[in-house]
Design a protein around this nucleic acid. Structure first.
Lengths: 227, 227
DNA sequence: CAGCGTAATTATGAATTCATAATTCAGTCA
DNA sequence: TGACTGAATTATGAATTCATAATTACGCTG
């Protein structure tokens, strides 16, 4: 048992940042909507002070837009933003691959190998739920395996903002097959400890994912950047 | 005249975020020091509420460390953090180069060319001040030229945290010459609109800069990561 | 009846107040 | 004399209050 856990009670504003972030990411608070300060205070049973502190933090993270004297609105996920974000994620993925290749222990690679196998099984069974979970676990393991907290933090920050666009749902049969192939490639490079190669493959993997999404949603599905 | 400018008066907490950030980056508030809440309130003539909101934001940016019931301390710049940050900056530089190459207008490249010439003159005159300024202008122009706000934001965030280590002062004659050569290379690739090439050179430029700093400071100059 | 202007209401930013946790300091006992 | 205990002081987190900007509602005028 971790002794810290039992003692640590985060401050209200920290707790609220988490809660509100979830509400936004889980789409309970919809993009463009005004954040109902009063209402949230009541539901959480706190005063406005810690809630407003939390909103300031979310503002600096770009999840909400703060307008002076006009309160906070949930930030829209514009197409322009998504298009800007993906290339950045892609190069971070590349770095993740390079570093993970160098720093992962053999045991950790084994664990990833297992998750990969599970993912392939889920693919063959057309079990999207399990597939997504395994996929996420793998990418998460690689990110952690990079042993670079700065990289991890910025990767997660970007991932969070993009995930709200929630276009992951559309996964064409064709793209799915391609993704599996790319993952085979990832495992191959990982087994060979080919850092450069893994970096390259992961970057490409992300860019392909991006391209597929753009294609699948065409010009719709997201607010235009002029909105 | 920009009409927006005359109207916009930022909220106190926004103003304070800027001011405090400067105090930290300019080293007026030293790493490890406790942030004197009361004192700052008096000097800025504001109450604790907006100041504390600002501290929460700076906390989420990693510039200060917030401990529950024990206030805020200016974050230390550990060697581990710097070592983690540089590779991330490097890949962002790479992306900056690629995008800037594609998106800069000819006129903008001309302007950079001018700054480059000024930088070389400063180098020959051994004018560090002017050299640094021109160098910064060039990198800034490239970053803006990338036309990617997400990239820009994250690049600036990382740059800010690292700049506090302030080891730019030590610039060996040898490294200086090398940096100039690398910049010649950058200009060459830029003139040729060689996106891949520019990305590569800028990444290498950053990694070399990093290596030089590590070398110049040896194992000292920064707090150890265990501190 | 539509559009404008003004008053009432509400929402927001910031100051103040309050409760409690942390720190300091004095006194006591080994 | 030095370490420990506990009260006094201070600092911190959070609630409340206050002033003002924004929004809404209403009436007036053309």
């Amino acid at each position: 048992m971790n002794l810290n856990e039992s003692i640590k009670r985060p401050t209200l504003h920290q707790e609220l940042v988490e809660r509100l972030r979830n509400l936004i990411v889980e789409d309970a608070l919809k993009p463009g909507e005004k954040v109902p300060e009063k209402e949230l205070c009541e539901t959480f049973g706190v005063s406005r002070t810690p809630l407003r502190e939390a909103l300031k933090v979310l503002g600096s993270e770009g999840l909400v837009i703060l307008q002076a004297n006009r309160g906070a609105r949930v930030a829209e996920v514009t197409r322009a933003e998504v298009e800007s974000t993906f290339p950045v994620i892609a190069v971070l993925e590349q770095l993740t691959g390079e570093l993970a290749c160098r720093n992962l222990s053999d045991a950790e690679i084994q664990a990833i190998e297992k998750r990969h196998a599970a993912m392939v099984r889920a693919y063959k069974a057309r079990d999207r739920q399990t597939y997504f979970k395994a996929n996420q676990d793998i990418h998460n393991a690689l990110l952690i395996g990079a042993r670079n907290e700065i990289l991890e933090m910025h990767h997660r920050m970007l991932g969070m903002r993009v995930r709200r666009a929630r276009f992951m749902v559309n996964l064409s049969e064709e793209r799915w097959a391609q993704a599996i192939e790319e993952h085979e490639d990832i495992m191959e490079k990982l087994r060979a400890r080919d850092a450069q190669g893994l970096g390259q493959v992961m970057k490409t993997h992300m860019m392909n994912k991006f391209a597929a999404h753009l294609k699948s949603m065409g010009s719709g599905g997201l607010e235009s950047d002029s909105a």
